[in-house]
């Protein structure tokens, strides 16, 4: 398992666990990020953070602190 923020650009991965709590966790659930969700890493912002991800048909940008609390397996 890896932290989502460490996954290289262009890779696809699948969510295995969320380590955030309370409000942050709610945010993630709101965006449809739960176990077994597919995420594709799209691109970094000019200064490297945040990173844009393709999640359930939408492009969502997450800061590295928040992405690091999503544990994933790289699948492709």
């Amino acid at each position: 398992m890896e932290n989502l923020n460490k996954v290289p650009i262009g890779k696809k991965c699948i969510v295995k666990d969320l380590t955030s709590s309370k409000k942050e966790r709610r945010r993630m659930l709101d965006l449809g990020i739960v176990k077994n969700t597919n995420i594709e890493v799209l691109y970094k912002s000019p200064v490297g953070d945040p990173i844009a991800y393709f999640i359930r048909g939408a492009v969502i940008a997450l800061r590295s602190e928040d992405a690091s609390k999503i544990l994933v397996d790289i699948i492709d």
Binding site: S20, E24, R27, L31, V59, A61, R63, E65, D66
Partner: peptide, 10 residues
């Protein structure tokens, strides 16, 4: 400290 942040790029 900064709170969590997510932004949709439509």
């Amino acid at each position: 400290i900064p709170s969590s942040f997510s932004l949709e790029l439509p």
